[in-house]
């Protein structure tokens, strides 16, 4: 689907097919929550969720809504609000396939895809139970280790090439260039993914690449498949330098989502509510 066909959140949700390998940003790095709501409304199923490198409420809601088959992540947590109850319940019931990772492994595997490489080596990990449960991670010998060193085992991670990368940013322009500032992992996600779909707070009438002061913090439209304007698009989470999370919502959520019925109720309400104006 080309950018011109994506006009609103429903178009965007329709462009993410069931079964997609979907990369999402961390809750603190521009989570596309309005788009996530549209995805759940369209009853997306069988997602392979890649959290870059962790997630919170976004993964939690998708899991609770039954949209996720596989989750590849270094953690799922609601931070100071506590454990993510639907994630924890799904793990206990064996409802989702876990690909437990460590943060730099997810970054490195995306970098491999961005470079068109089959794998990326990474230090550490050896001797952990993560490695034991990740048959897709291999231990290889460093081919450049000095001959007298007795060898240098190193972990090789297969590239992660998401079908779609999805996140929310403060600003894009009419040409589809997207400002991400210092949140460079979003650039890597866009480089690695086949398609990148973005929601933004605002559309700029001037081209963001024209200003040298901004250009290095901008993802060029070359990598972007669709941009949709969504005010407060990260709500009930926050957006860096723009607005904080909706504390009252999150407290209500963790209390309600402890049970299946409580979650169903809070989800239905969230799907029905208009996005709360950022304060």
């Amino acid at each position: 689907m080309s950018a011109c066909q994506i006009r609103d959140l429903d178009d965007l949700a329709a462009a993410i097919p069931d079964g997609a390998k979907l990369a999402v940003s961390a809750d603190y790095s521009g989570p596309a929550m309005a788009a996530t709501r549209a995805l759940i409304r369209r009853r997306v199923r069988n997602l392979h969720l890649v959290c870059v490198p962790v997630s919170g409420l976004q993964a939690e809601l998708l899991i609770g809504a039954g949209a996720v088959d596989v989750i590849e992540t270094s953690a799922v947590t609601l931070g100071e609000y506590g454990a993510a109850p639907r994630f924890v319940a799904a793990v206990r019931r064996g409802k989702i396939t876990l690909k437990d990772a460590t943060c730099p492994a997810i970054h490195a595997a995306l970098q491999a895809a961005a470079k068109g490489l089959p794998f990326m080596p990474l230090r550490g990990i050896l001797g952990s139970d993560l490695l034991k449960h990740r048959p897709d991670w291999k231990v290889i010998e460093n081919p450049f280790a000095p001959g007298d060193s007795g060898g240098d085992p190193i972990v090789a991670l297969p590239a992660i090439k998401p079908d779609v990368a999805l996140f929310h940013a403060p600003l894009a322009d009419r040409d589809g260039n997207v400002f991400i500032g210092r949140h460079r992992e979003l650039m890597t996600m866009a480089h690695a993914a086949t398609q990148t779909l973005i929601t933004v707070e605002e559309i700029s009438e001037t081209n963001l690449l024209e200003d040298e002061r901004f250009a290095a913090g901008v993802i060029p439209a070359l990598y972007i498949s669709g941009v949709v304007e969504a005010r407060s698009g990260a709500w009930p989470l926050g957006l860096w330098n723009a607005y904080g999370e909706d504390e009252a919502f999150l407290r209500r959520y963790v209390a309600a989502a402890k049970t299946d019925a409580g979650f169903a109720d809070v989800l239905a309400r969230w799907l029905g509510e208009p996005a709360m104006a950022a304060e």
Partner: peptide, 13 residues
């Protein structure tokens, strides 16, 4: 179930 390993499997090394 706790959140997950974060960067521990790497930074510890």
């Amino acid at each position: 179930r706790w959140p997950g390993s974060f960067g521990s499997a790497y930074l510890y090394f």
